[in-house]
Amino acid sequence: MMDDLEKRMIDGFQRDLPLVERPYAEIAKKLGVEEDDVIEALKVLKENGTLSRVGAVFKPNTVGESTLAAMAVDQDRLEEVAAIVSNFDEVNHNYEREHRLNLWFVIASAEKGGVDSVLEQIQKMTGIKVLNLPMLEDYHLDLGFDLRWT
């Protein structure tokens, strides 16, 4: 279970980590605790997976390129194909989903042409067509996630 300090940090600082020399001291000041306590608590939350990270959320495709890709994989080949896909460093999310197109993954590369190259390699290695679904426009204003503690 998370303690009160951890909850207050997640609630209050998804978009308000000040860009100053000692940002964790600013959190500490606002929450009335010590800077070291904030840093320790953030380390714990990161280690146990509650936080993906502490830092900046960048607009997609600002540096490099990325895409969402989907494949229709027979159930008896799913493990094998999923392993091939996940093995690429450029693949950072890979989900099985309930649809005929059952394997969905995100490819990101800092290099021009990097995404196309991974798409081609996956098609070649698996013999399965990969659907390429790049973002054309983004409609989400990312203000963080409003959590409802229960």
């Binding site: 997640i10 978009r15 953030l42 936080l51 993906s52 960048f58 990312d142 996630f145």
Partner: peptide, 25 residues
């Protein structure tokens, strides 16, 4: 810090803060 502030103003950085993992929560 100055460059990150500028990227925040320009929208290249959307926000700076804790990024929770929905699943873990």
């Amino acid at each position: 810090i100055e460059r990150m502030k500028r990227m925040l103003d320009q929208g290249i950085i959307r926000r700076v803060g804790v990024v929770p993992n929905h699943y873990a929560l």
